[in-house]
Nucleic acid binder design. Sequence first.
DNA 1: CTTGTTATTGTATGAATGTTCAACAGTGAC
DNA 2: GTCACTGTTGAACATTCATACAATAACAAG
Lengths: 202, 202
Amino acid sequence: MAARQPKFERLTADMRRERLVEASINCLAVEGIQGFTVDAICREAGSSRGLIVHHFGSKDALLAAVYAEVFQSLLAGLDGIDPETATPEALVDGVLSGGFQDRKYLNVWLALWGEISVNPGMQAEHRKLNAMFREKLALSLEAMAKQRGTAIDGYGVAILLISLADGLWLQQSIDQSLLASDRAKELCLKVVNAALSGGLNL
Amino acid sequence: MAARQPKFERLTADMRRERLVEASINCLAVEGIQGFTVDAICREAGSSRGLIVHHFGSKDALLAAVYAEVFQSLLAGLDGIDPETATPEALVDGVLSGGFQDRKYLNVWLALWGEISVNPGMQAEHRKLNAMFREKLALSLEAMAKQRGTAIDGYGVAILLISLADGLWLQQSIDQSLLASDRAKELCLKVVNAALSGGLNL
DNA sequence: CTTGTTATTGTATGAATGTTCAACAGTGAC
DNA sequence: GTCACTGTTGAACATTCATACAATAACAAG
């Protein structure tokens, strides 16, 4: 007699939550916010429909969990960067590659930004996480400027770099024929180098 | 006896289309793509539900019309700028204020970008319109560089400026506490001036 | 083996969605 | 006044949606 076949896989709550978050990212990536439906997500995650409410309470709470996850991978791009020894190349690489580099995430970020701009809870989270990111960048930038004997406004340059990287990534993701990704990196690098050498008066 | 009261206002097709497009923009602005529903749009436009299909054929076609309208106001920001006599200030002003300046449009653009990245027809339109915008910018930038006696890659600087402006506007729209809009303008201006004087080697 | 906990399922439900369509009515031509 | 044209209405329709919930079953503890 064959071994008994369980009717479903029973996971720990954390593992199931993780699977649902990843499935959500895939759904968002492919079809945008229109594809972010309970049916599609659970199909992608290989579970039944009831689990989103059971593990997250609501679909909105799941989207918040997606944001936390995606932002983690953005922060990870700056991991391993030591403010004292970092090079401009490493910094630009970190900003451009953390969670972003992949065009796949365009629709994920579009959905998240839309939600952040409307949902006060997510806006608070966004401010907190973004401040961390900016802080880390600003420290590295100021350390590098110091080595060159120039004084800069690290906060201002950080905003400049983040905005430029976001804008380039956005344009490139929407229309891939616009520019190659190494060209985007080159543009960022030139601006950062100019800022660090005092050429932008920042 | 009172004058007969018409049961509804009968407009020309063009006027009705315009009203529906404007109503769509308002709906998108307030609630994002979630608020872009036939019911909400027609309520906002003060008409019955049947008119979207009647005048546009489908809701998707209406969104395409919204894109055309919004991009027009983006192009209008560069109107009146003569490549030969333009100043960097005027150019940066034009890029930052055309159709963008207003935080109100954040959700409109997020929805449009999402659709563009997925819908081939809108992607083609996007490429065409964006190329026009870039072309106009590049011409003005090259003319200004020439006056300063430097040779630049107008196309590259245009992409740099557009991306930076987009990124700054995006960050600022998502979190208004991040930076003031005159600060954003100042950052753009410094980068453009550096580029025009050859400081960025572009 | 028995039992308790809880992850999981899948149906039920009611609200909201985009589109269709036949009837209606404003408007200008004659 | 009569007519044709077409902008407009609003009910009908089939889907799809998020959520609620009671039944089921996996799994660990004893």
